[in-house]
Design a binder for these strands. Sequence first.
DNA 1: TTTTCTTATGAAAACGTTTACATTCGGGCA
DNA 2: TGCCCGAATGTAAACGTTTTCATAAGAAAA
Lengths: 336, 336
Amino acid sequence: MSVATVSRALNGSANVTAQTRRRIAGVAARLRYVPHGAARSLVTRRTQTIGALLPDLFGEFFSELIRGIDLAARARGLQLLVSSSHGDASEAATALRAMQGRVDGLLIMSPHVDAPFLRDHLPAALPAVLLNTSVADARYTTLNIDNYGGARAMTRHLLDCGYRDIAFITGPADNFDAAERLKGFREASAESARARVLPGDFSEESGHRAGREIAAMRQRPQAVFAANDMMAIGCLLALTETGLRVPEDVALAGFDDIPIARYVNPPLTTVRVRIADLGQGALEQLVARMETPDAPMHAQTLACEIVPRASCVPLSGSRKHHRPKSRKHSSSGEIS
Amino acid sequence: MSVATVSRALNGSANVTAQTRRRIAGVAARLRYVPHGAARSLVTRRTQTIGALLPDLFGEFFSELIRGIDLAARARGLQLLVSSSHGDASEAATALRAMQGRVDGLLIMSPHVDAPFLRDHLPAALPAVLLNTSVADARYTTLNIDNYGGARAMTRHLLDCGYRDIAFITGPADNFDAAERLKGFREASAESARARVLPGDFSEESGHRAGREIAAMRQRPQAVFAANDMMAIGCLLALTETGLRVPEDVALAGFDDIPIARYVNPPLTTVRVRIADLGQGALEQLVARMETPDAPMHAQTLACEIVPRASCVPLSGSRKHHRPKSRKHSSSGEIS
DNA sequence: TTTTCTTATGAAAACGTTTACATTCGGGCA
DNA sequence: TGCCCGAATGTAAACGTTTTCATAAGAAAA
C-alpha cells in the first residue's frame, strides 16, 4: 500500500476498494497510527483551529466568554488555541505572531489592539473578529456589548423607581466598557435627575471606598449605580457596615450580573450581559468570515437586560417617569 | 539571500553577519513576513503548545484551573490548546486524536479516562499529566486535590466546634471527588458523632432539596456539611426560607471556597482548594516530563485548607475534641 | 482476441520551514 | 605566491501529509 492509498482510505475519500479500506483501517488501528496534525495542516492550509487573543483569563467574565466560544467551536469541530495576558501591545503582537500558521481564524479582545496595530500585525488573509473593542473600522468585523444602552436602561429603571438623586461609580478611566457605561448614565440622567459621579476602578475595594464616602455624605443620594457588580458589592458592604439599609436608605444597582449578584443580601439589581452569547456569536461571525472571506464586514452590538432584584425597589410615591418600564430592555441592533 | 540564511538570521543563530542580519530583518518587516507555525513544527518536532483535555469549561473551578495553567504556560512561552466537554470516552478519544502533532504535552482531566483508555489512545511518546483522577497507575504522572484530607479536616473542625450530630450532603455517586470527600467525612465522623448522609449532585438545587429535608426533620442535625459550596448555598437558602437561623439553629459548611462563599449571609465556612495552583502545578509537572521523559512518574496530592467563616461557630459549651485545631490544615504529601 | 473505458493504485510534487553538509571567499601564515 | 583555515552563505534533504497526474489492471464492448 502506498501512502497515497492510505491517506485516501483514512480520509474516507472515494476510489478505494472496501477491502483495502478495511485492511488499512485494521493496520492503522493495530499500529495506533494517528495522522500528524502539523504535517496535515501544512499541506491543506487548514488547521481546524481558531485562536483567541484575550487580555486575561481571570474571573467570571472570561470563563463565560471562553465557554461560549468553546461551545460554538466544538459544534463545528474546531479546536481552540487561547492566549492571554497581553500586558502591552508588543506582547499582543508576539502572541499574534505565535499563532501564525496554527489557526484558521482569530478572535481578538484586547485593550491594546487598535486599528494601526491590526494594520501592522494582522495578516490581511487571516479572518478575524474583534470583541468588545473601541475599534470602529469598516475593515474589521466587530462584536460589542451594548454597555451604553445597558447603562442608559438601568438609569431609566432607577428613575422609573422614583429615585431622583443618583450616584454613579465609574470604572477605570482608560477602559472602553467603563467609558460607555458612564456615557449611558450621563445621557439618561441628564434631564431629570441629580447625578454625581464617583471614581472607581472595577475592583471591590474601590466600590467599598465609594460606599464609605456615600455613607458619610450630608446629602446622601437615593440610589447608587456602580459600573460593575464587584464595585456594587463592595459598596453594599460599606453601606451595611455603616448601618445603612439597602434599599430602604439607599438603593443599589450594578452591571454584569455575575453569579454572586444573586446571593448577596439583598440580591443585587443589575444589568445582565449574556457573555456566553457574546463568545458564541463571535465564533459564529468568525466562521462566517472564514467561509466567505469577501463578505462585507459589519459591526454588531449585543443587547443587555435589566435584572430587577431586591436591592432597589419602586419608591412608594413614585410615578412612572419615562415610558412604562419593560422588563427586558432590548438595546440590540445592527450598526453599519 | 537563501532561505537558509534567512532562517538563521531570524532565529538569531550564530554565523550570520550583523549586516545581513539587519538587511534580512528589514526586508522581513517590510514584507510582514511571519514564519509558518505548522511548517516549523513539522520539522522541529516542537509545537510550543500544550493541550488541555477538560470535561467542561463551566464555572469557577475550570476558570481558575485554566488560569493557573495559562499562567505557568505563558511563563515558559507555551501556548494552550483546550478541548472540553467529552460526553463519553469516544469523544475524549477523538479530541485526543485531534491533538496529535499539535502539542508537545498533554494535561488530562476527564471522568472517562482510565488506565485502559490511556493505553489505547495515548501515544507512549507524548508526555502527559493526569489531573484529579482516579487512575493510580505508576506509569502515569498524576496530580490530585486532597479531597479526602480536606473533608476529614472539615469534619474534625465541626467536631472541634462542638457539633455532635452532623449531616453530610454528598455529590454525584459516580464522581471521584465526591466519593473521596464522603470517605473523608465518614472516617472522621465514625467514632465520635452521629452522622447521616443525604443525597446530592453538586447542584444548588439538590442542596436546596436537602435543606428543606433537614428543616423538616424531627431531630435536626446540629451541623450540615455539604460536599461542595453550591449545595451548601442551596441548603442555606432552604434553611433561611423555613425560618431557621445559621449558625444558631444549624451550622453549615461547604467545600471549594468559590468566590460566592464569602458573600452569602452568613459567610460560608468552607474548604479552600487552590485550584489555580493545581493547574500551575500540573503544567510544571508536565514541563518536567517533557524535559526529562525518562524520569520516574509520581503521584502528588495538593493540600486543602479550612476557611472558618460565620456559618459555623464554636458552640458555647464546646470542649476541644481532637488535638487543638490548626487553622491551616496541611494534608499535602508525596505518594509513591 | 483486441480495443476501449473505468477504476483502483502508485509516483511524485508540494506545503514552508530547519539543519547537516558543501561551497565560497577572504585573510593570515609559510 | 600558494595553502590552509575559519567564517559566511548556499544546497538540498527531511519532516508527514494531501493531491494531481500517470499507470496498471480488469471489465465491458467490439
